[in-house]
């Protein structure tokens, strides 16, 4: 899901930085206003937590492993605005220090994972769980469904961004300058692998973590 440099053209990269700037500004303002002083380290810890969730290999049928992005889980635990900052910070560190995800694509990656996935997942979780008890099974199911839909919406956006590249950026001979596949290939490829594999990993991880946290400390979720 992390878009590297070179997949998106300059216009697309600039567009997503422009879209994310006000989102980051609003997130900073809201979090600064609502975060209690003693929760200040929580943002950084939440960012580190969302960074290392990807290091947990989760076995999947067939003998292989996958990993979750954890964006919806962090949104459920921290709230959407704080999660937006935490996931952004994790993505920036990955891109800047470890070359995982492009620097020019930080805007697009943050739009997909720190904004779309976080907010879609969080509000789907809220919508399904309604006013159920913190320790209820409904919340576990809500977390799984929210994570599955959240990551699939993010994957769909990523597929659309890839697929638009040949239309937006091509030379006089009509040759693609960046991601070379159109919407008819990029969208099914991105959506397919997330609907069939990664969405389930995300759903299982998010639902089970919520379930375990309910057992450890019921009022947490």
């Amino acid at each position: 899901m992390h878009i590297p440099d070179g997949y998106l053209g300059p216009t697309t990269c600039g567009f997503f930085y422009a879209v994310m700037l006000p989102v980051w500004a609003i997130a900073s303002r809201i979090v600064k206003k609502t975060l209690k002083a003693k929760q200040v380290p929580m943002l950084a810890i939440g960012a580190a937590f969302s960074f290392v969730i990807m290091m947990f290999n989760v076995p999947i049928p067939g003998g292989s492993t996958g990993h979750a992005t954890g964006a919806v889980l962090v949104a459920i635990l921290l709230g959407p605005w704080a999660a937006c900052i935490a996931v952004t910070v994790a993505l920036v560190i990955q891109a800047l220090l470890f070359g995982d995800g492009g620097i020019t694509a930080i805007g697009a990656n943050c739009f997909n994972m720190a904004f779309v996935e976080v907010f879609a997942g969080y509000y789907i979780y809220k919508l399904i769980s309604l006013k159920s008890a913190p320790g209820s099974k409904r919340r576990v199911i809500a977390a799984g469904i929210a994570a599955y839909i959240g990551i699939n919406i993010a994957a769909l956006f990523t597929g659309i961004e890839f697929g638009l590249q040949p239309l937006l950026h091509h030379n006089a001979a009509g040759q693609a300058l960046y991601c070379p596949y159109g919407l008819n290939v990029a969208v099914p490829a991105m959506a397919g692998e997330h609907i069939l594999i990664f969405g389930w990993v995300e759903a299982i991880v998010t639902a089970l973590v919520v379930k375990f946290l309910q057992r450890q400390e019921g009022g947490l979720i």
């Binding site: 943002l43 950084a44 290392v52 560190i93």
Partner: peptide, 22 residues
């Protein structure tokens, strides 16, 4: 913004702590 820079700096340290725990 300062909030991001502060979070980035603190986060970087905790990543190593968490990775060691894992």
């Amino acid at each position: 913004p300062q909030m991001f820079v502060m979070t980035l700096g603190m986060c970087y340290r905790y990543i190593f702590l968490f990775a060691e725990i894992i």
